[in-house]
């Protein structure tokens, strides 16, 4: 949960950082020249400095009016991290866990989500981010898609349990953000989940 909040803040910071003026970008391609040379009349090719020598700043982010959900950092309560930890510790908000290579909700996962839905329904001032996570035993690209399916399965269940769909956003981290860095079934089990994070409203 901490990672998600940090991710938002880092994202907002990153966008702010790139709001700097664009600089020129010079072409550093080496020009082709003739091949056969006579002594002292050889054609000279100027090799410009390496790319790193003239790295330019990223230009302004491309922001287009769109229907994409935007989350701003300034409305996040300062104690969101603590609140998430507290609710998870108390079992009021519970993550859904999955079997290997699958996005189907088990009865345990459904029970966890039912519990979470009842808290969310009685605390409507919070929105929810559902993160889809996978263990490391798959491939990265496919697991990003699998994590999306897991997050959506959890969201669909919460909505069916009465939580307003507009309060829930999903994101997939695939196998990029494991909860347990280990390489055994104990770790993998922890890492196959839909992780529920309150994000304020």
């Amino acid at each position: 949960m901490n990672n998600a909040v940090k991710g938002f803040l880092a994202g907002v910071t990153a966008i702010a950082l790139v709001m700097t003026p664009a600089c020129r970008s010079k072409n550093t391609k080496v020009k082709d020249e003739q091949v056969h040379v006579q002594p002292d009349t050889a054609p000279t090719v100027t090799i410009p400095p390496h790319d790193t020598a003239e790295r330019v700043q990223p230009s302004e982010d491309f922001v287009k009016p769109s229907a994409e959900p935007t989350v701003t950092a300034d409305v996040l309560p300062s104690n969101t991290e603590e609140l998430n930890r507290y609710l998870q510790d108390k079992g009021l908000i519970r993550d859904a866990f999955f079997v290997y290579a699958d996005a189907t909700l088990s009865s345990d996962a459904q029970a966890a989500l039912t519990t979470s839905a009842s808290w969310l329904k009685s605390n409507s001032k919070y929105n929810l981010l559902v993160e889809g996570h996978c263990d490391e035993r798959g491939t990265e690209q496919y697991n990003l898609a699998l994590g999306d399916k897991r997050a959506q399965q959890a969201k669909d269940y919460l909505v069916a349990s009465g939580v307003d769909a507009s309060r829930i956003r999903t994101v997939s981290y695939g196998e990029e953000r494991p909860f347990d860095p280990g390489h055994d079934e104990g770790a993998w089990k922890q890492n196959r989940r839909a992780h529920l994070v309150l994000v304020g409203k």
């Binding site: 998600a4 991710g7 938002f8 880092a10 994202g11 907002v12 990153a14 966008i15 790139v18 664009a22 600089c23 970008s25 790319d51 003239e54 790295r55 330019v56 700043q57 990223p58 230009s59 982010d61 491309f62 994409e68 959900p69 935007t70 989350v71 981010l129 990003l144 956003r169 994101v171 997939s172 981290y173």
Partner: peptide, 19 residues
């Protein structure tokens, strides 16, 4: 994931022109 969502970006090979 800079915005908290996973987004597609294009950048040139010097790190500039990012959209």
């Amino acid at each position: 994931f800079a915005r908290g969502t996973s987004d597609m970006y294009i950048v040139n090979r010097r790190g500039g022109g990012r959209i």
